[in-house]
Structures are given as C-alpha cells and as structure tokens.
Design a binder for these strands. Structure first.
Lengths: 187, 187
DNA sequence: ACCTGAACACCGTTCAAGT
DNA sequence: ACCTGAACACCGTTCAAGT
C-alpha cells in the first residue's frame, strides 16, 4: 500500500510559484516561452524547474489540469442531458480551451497522435467526448451521416489556431460555417 | 535611370545555394529551421546568409516567389473565365500553397496584418483574389450573402494549419464542410 | 561589393555537488 | 528529498576586418 507522502514545504512552494509564473509567461508570450525565463521569474534555478516538470509539455499539462476537468465535466453533462446544440456548444468550449495559450492548439493537435506527449491522455479524452457527441447527432439526423469524430477534432484545432493567428471572430465564424456544412443532410 | 547591375559571380552562386539548401531544410524541418544550419549546408558563413536575406521572412519570401506567381496566375484565370467551382478551386490551391512548408501557414496568417513582414504584399494579393472571387460567388448566389473575403482567409489558413498538424485528409475535409456551409443560402 | 567568422546575448537540458 | 548552478551544445544577429 503506497502512501502519497506530503512534499517538503519548499518543494511545494516552488511547484506553485513555477506554475503561477509559467501561466503568466505563457499568457504573454505563448507556450514556447523560454523555460529559463520562467525559472527566473519564479526565483528558482533552472534545475528546479526540470525537477518538477521534466518536459515543457508536462508543465503545460499541469497548467491545464483544472481547466481540463471543467471541460470534461461539460462534455459529460452534454452527453447525459441531450440538448439540440450540444455539439456546437462542445466545439466552442473545446476551441476556447485549446486557445488558452498561443501555441497550445499545435501542441494539442500533435499530442493526439503522439503517445509520448504528456498531453496525450487529455487529448484522447477530448477526442472521445467529441466522437460520442457527433455519433448522437448523427443518429438524431442533426448532422450528415458521414460526419465523424475527426471532423470535430479538425474543426476544433483549426478554430483554435485561427483564434491565435487571426482573431476570435474568424475562429467563431469558421465554427458557424462548418457546423452549417455538417448540418446539410443530403450528400 | 537605374540599371540593375549584374551581381558578382560568387554572390549569385551563394544566393542560389542558400535558396536551394533553405528549401531542403524547410521541407524537412519547417520554416523555423536554424539559419546557421542552412548556411552550413550551403557552405557559406552565417554573415553571407544575412547579407542576402536580412530576415527569415525575406528568405521564405524569396523561396515562395515562383510558387506565388503560379498561384496568382491561377487566381486571375479563375476571375477572367468564370466557372462554377472557382472559389473552391482557389481555396484548395491557396491552402496547398500555404502548406508548402510546416510553419508557413502561421507566417502567412500573421503576415497579412503585419506591414513589416516581407510576406505582407503577397498575403494581401492572395486576400484580394479571394475577396474578388467570393464577391462574384455572392452575386451569383453560389454562396450565402454574408460570405466575406475574411471567410476565405480564415478557411485557407485554418486548412493549411490542419494539413501541417493533422493530415491532408482533414484539411480537405474542412474545406468541403465549410464550402457546404457557405453554400447554404437561407440564413 | 561581397564574404568571413568572432563576438555577444540568449536558450534547452543534464548532472555532480551541495543541504 | 530537493535545490543549485556550472557545463555542454546550440542558436539569432551584428559588425569589424578582410579580399
């Protein structure tokens, strides 16, 4: 029986400070901001950052933990209590999530196929929810019969990338247009 | 009256070798590949690369010159001799162009608003062609009346980014779905 | 007119040495 | 158990000195 040991007080403090400063740095300069600068801002040596987060994606994953839980809850709620615009609601929420930091959309898009990515599990979970939602919409006839989970992934990552490189308005517009395209029943 | 002077033979050779090696490097490792490695591959000092191409985007712009001309010709041809699928043809060609190197879609998306980018002029030209094509499709009733040039830009850059981070198939599928959404006449 | 490469400032990542 | 920071390998960019 393994007990999770209480971490040393300074370790816990460093962990928290690193997370806070990484969040600030990534908000300002995107997810590819220098890790040295994050460590500097947090007032720890670079080795300490690597001690807590062995890879950049581990750090991003830790930052996304809470946000992820909120997103998954929404997904399960939409699956549990069906409503007409469930799929669109999901796509917009997932897009907002993937656009939390600039550069994140690319990391998530790559993470879905890359099993070594620290983001892989949560990417799979997002893909899974999207797939179940689109399956139900297909059965309802709300979307065309050839609509797939890949369509949902594609739209989500594409819209998040637009959010980053063009604007929130263009991202939202792409979602509207693509959802309209998905709603066309006759092929 | 300014005469374009014939460049020194070694300068011309270095220019060509830099272009060739940059193309190879960017194909393999994307448009953010190290410039030092490009200079090394071309067998010149790093200062020589900077002498010919003061910024990374100038180098990318030079690599894209011929490709760009082909694309613009296609655009003008589609505008001159209307055909039913002109807009879709354009979007697919522009997407393929923007997906020539990984990382290029982001550079082009940013270049459209950034007047200091060496890619700005060609981005504007692409946007202009897209706008004229969508205007005509709007008049024909081939697309919904609220379709804009921004929709075309958004779809193109989004699809190119999908091509890079997901697959050509997903990129193409997004184009199909969004074009279907644009074709919906009733709002 | 063009090329070279040292110089400067910066970064990712590891790991021996400390406490 | 965790932290430090030097060490290594690499990069972007500039510019004085050469030819």
């Amino acid at each position: 029986m393994t007990t999770t040991r209480r971490p040393r007080a300074d370790a816990r403090r460093n962990y928290e400070r690193l997370l806070a400063e990484a969040d600030a740095a990534f908000r300002e300069g995107g997810v590819e901001s220098s890790l040295e600068s994050v460590a500097r801002r947090a007032g720890v040596a670079i080795g300490t950052l690597y001690g807590h987060f062995p890879t950049r994606r581990a750090l991003v994953g830790a930052l996304l933990r809470e946000r992820n839980e909120g997103l998954f809850e929404l997904g399960e709620r939409l699956l549990a209590r069906p409503e007409p615009d469930a799929l669109a609601t999901w796509v917009r929420a997932a897009t907002a999530h993937a656009a939390a930091y600039s550069g994140l959309a690319a990391l998530l898009a790559d993470g879905l196929d890359d099993e070594t990515s620290d983001l892989h599990a949560s990417c799979r979970r997002m893909a899974d929810i999207g797939e179940r939602l689109v399956a139900r919409a297909r059965e309802t006839g709300a979307v065309r019969p050839d609509a797939t989970g890949d369509d949902v992934i594609a739209l989500t990552t594409a819209a998040a990338s637009l959010h980053e490189h063009r604007s929130a308005a263009e991202a939202d517009r792409l979602i509207t247009l693509t959802m309209a395209g998905l709603a066309v029943r006759r092929l």
